[in-house]
């Protein structure tokens, strides 16, 4: 018996959100009196695998087959299912991500497991197995009971604060059966921003909307983001107009983020935009219109012109 945690690699490193999941999984293992096994798929360095132990895993399973380097949801689901069976794991923990979401759904189908997504707190085991999850893009929470024997918990990013210790965990090689049927979808091309801080994982985000007037003005947004080591994001019209790439657009129809800090520049704060960012810990709004609805959902506000305010903020950050 153990809690199995799926730890996702990004360019060979365990993602920050997966470290949160490992920590979460280790706490669930404590609650249920079992051990916490982290499963890492694809090539990863010894240093990276050691991280799993420092964040709470008591054992690491590592399937280093190069065919698993490409995040393939179908193959990953089969491998995680095999590991869960081997470990006798009835509880599987993972961090929500574009890959993990697809993987988790296939896994739920395979194992006939109850799947709770966007989990934000440790389970409540007093009478059943209950978790609190965010629904309606953060506008409400549902206390959900998982009634099936097998359970999958997909943790919302940046809601669990992990603690790192100097614990170590043994790493065991895992050689799963890989089925050709899981490799029928062919990847013909990948285009991905490299080097940048990826928006879904970012702690700090500087975002801008139509108030910026045009793509040629994004320099002031990028400068502030760079000074803060933040990722950049945008509103939907901005990506619709092709000022910025689609994967930067946040909101109801874009991605949902929950960073520590979200700075919104020249964004009105439409409810569909808020849906993507309302679980950010601190929200700053800069808008020249004092009546902009976004101020109602903000922690700090500046009524001002972004073309004046942003460069000054960048300068102030550099002087910190």
């Amino acid at each position: 018996m153990s809690v199995l945690i799926f730890a996702e690699l990004e360019e060979g490193a365990i993602k920050k959100s997966s470290l949160e999941a490992i920590y979460y999984g280790s706490k669930v293992a404590e609650q249920t009196g079992t051990t916490a096994t982290a499963l890492v798929l694809g090539e990863g360095s010894t240093d990276e695998l050691a991280k799993a132990g420092r964040f709470g895993a008591t054992e690491v399973l590592h399937a280093s087959d190069a065919r698993l380097n490409e995040g393939n949801a179908l193959a990953y689901a089969s491998v995680v299912a095999e590991a869960a069976n081997q470990e006798g794991a009835n509880i599987i923990v993972l961090a929500k991500s574009s890959l993990a979401d697809s993987m988790a759904a296939r896994l739920a189908g395979k194992l006939k497991a109850g799947l709770a997504a966007n989990v934000i707190e440790l389970p409540d085991l007093s009478g059943g197995f209950r978790v609190k999850r965010s629904i309606f893009t953060g506008k409400a929470f549902a206390i959900t009971e998982l009634t099936a024997e097998k359970k999958i918990l997909a943790i919302k990013k940046n809601t669990i604060t992990p603690e790192e210790t100097d614990a170590t965990a043994p790493v065991e090689a895992f050689s799963p059966v890989l089925n050709d049927t899981d490799f029928v979808v062919k990847v013909t091309n990948v285009e991905k921003a490299t080097g940048d801080i990826l928006l879904p994982e970012a702690d700090l985000v500087v975002s801008a909307g139509r108030g910026l007037k045009g793509p040629e003005n994004w320099g002031i947004v990028e400068d502030l983001a760079k000074a803060l080591h933040a990722a950049t994001a945008c509103s939907k019209p901005v990506s619709d107009l092709d000022w910025r790439p689609h994967h930067e657009h946040v909101g109801q129809t874009g991605i949902k983020i929950s960073p520590n800090l979200y700075i919104a520049c020249g964004i009105s704060g439409a409810i569909q935009h808020l849906a993507g960012v309302n679980s950010s810990k601190v929200i700053v709004v800069i808008n020249k219109d004092a009546e902009a609805p976004f101020f109602k959902s903000a922690d700090y506000g500046i009524v001002g012109d972004v073309f004046d305010v942003l460069p000054r903020l960048t300068k102030a950050v550099k002087e910190l």
């Binding site: 506008k139 409400a140 929470f141 009971e145 099936a148 959902s297 305010v309 000054r312």
Partner: peptide
């Protein structure tokens, strides 16, 4: 049915927004 919702909660309201005059924008940082 493998999951069942037992109850709902609404998120706590955010505190009031602290306004910073534009001429003192640096204070924000």
């Amino acid at each position: 049915t493998l999951t069942q919702i037992s109850s709902y909660e609404l998120p706590p309201a955010r505190g009031a927004c602290k306004m910073i005059p534009a001429e003192e924008a640096e204070t924000l940082i």
